[in-house]
Design a protein around this nucleic acid. Sequence first.
DNA 1: AAGTCGGGGAG
DNA 2: CTCCCAGACTT
Length: 357
Amino acid sequence: MDQLAVPAADVAQARTDILAWFDRHGRHDLPWQHPATPYRVWVSEVMLQQTQVATVVPYFLRFLARFPDPVALADAPQEEVLALWAGLGYYARARNLHRAAQEIRDRHGGELPADLAALEALPGIGRSTAGAIHSLGQGRRAAILDGNVKRVLARWHAVEGWPGRSAVARHLWALSERYTPAQRCADYNQAMMDLGATVCTRRAPRCPQCPLQARCRARASGQPESWPSPKPKRDRPLRQTRMLILQQGNQVLLQKRPPTGIWGGLWSLPEADMDKTPERHAEAIGLKVDTTAHWPRLRHAFTHFELDIHPVHLKVSGAGQQVMESDTLWESIHETGTRAVAAPVARLLQQLREHTP
DNA sequence: AAGTCGGGGAG
DNA sequence: CTCCCAGACTT
């Protein structure tokens, strides 16, 4: 492995340059840095998985105000955890965070374990997140490999191939481990993330401001944007669904989604097949339809498919005798704003509130 | 190794 | 519109 043959003197000089850059130009005022407790670093790292810093900040502040420590989080109902997560996406992160907090409460005395392997054994904490907690939150030496570090290392050493491929990932992990220092590891890791976020950006990298410019092979090629290799493209299928906005008086019918799958554990509107009329669907669950209105189509994009949501607003009556499943409820339209719902459902409920006196 | 899982920022 | 972001988990 030629990347591991980097001479010790070069490794040492690179670390020095990166840390000097960090002292002058790194980010030192992110909310989870003050104080950088293991718990706060953990929550921030999980929120930051596949999510940009600017998006996370308000969620982080709300979350920490409500759940200031692992035990507070562990003792809360999952419903409340999901409600504070609603809108962030990847809701398995919230469910795993909650489960991990309960393990921390029950098996680790309410504090995050100081052992790297024990961290990684907790649900929702993989190798990189464990390394981040261990270094940034616990002051120990551990390598990380997030999107920023991948990009910096891939350019620095002109690593070919999409980082999602395991061979490429192994290569990048080896590089990360090679450069990660024992001294000032937290600053070094933060520096690498800051470099990727503010200098070695995906497009239009600011190479003249980079402490690695003289040793960067991508820079030397004249096309630094060519690294890392992009993810292989796949066509995204377009799916159709119908969402029923069943209104009775000032109430609307909500349905809790299964614990796994899309929007797992969140509240939603009942979905109906496109090949059956919405009136028929409403009548099938014992509701009498008074009026029907088709709302404009909502297109929602996921990573691997697109979803066309066809909302139908039905004013109904006769729900009093209907036996309700435990996963459905009638909610006052004006109180739907506080439930954990997916983004497009939140949009529909907001429209409903605006059209309801 | 490939697929699943959200939502939004930025060009 | 496209790409991808402080990734982890399942199969």
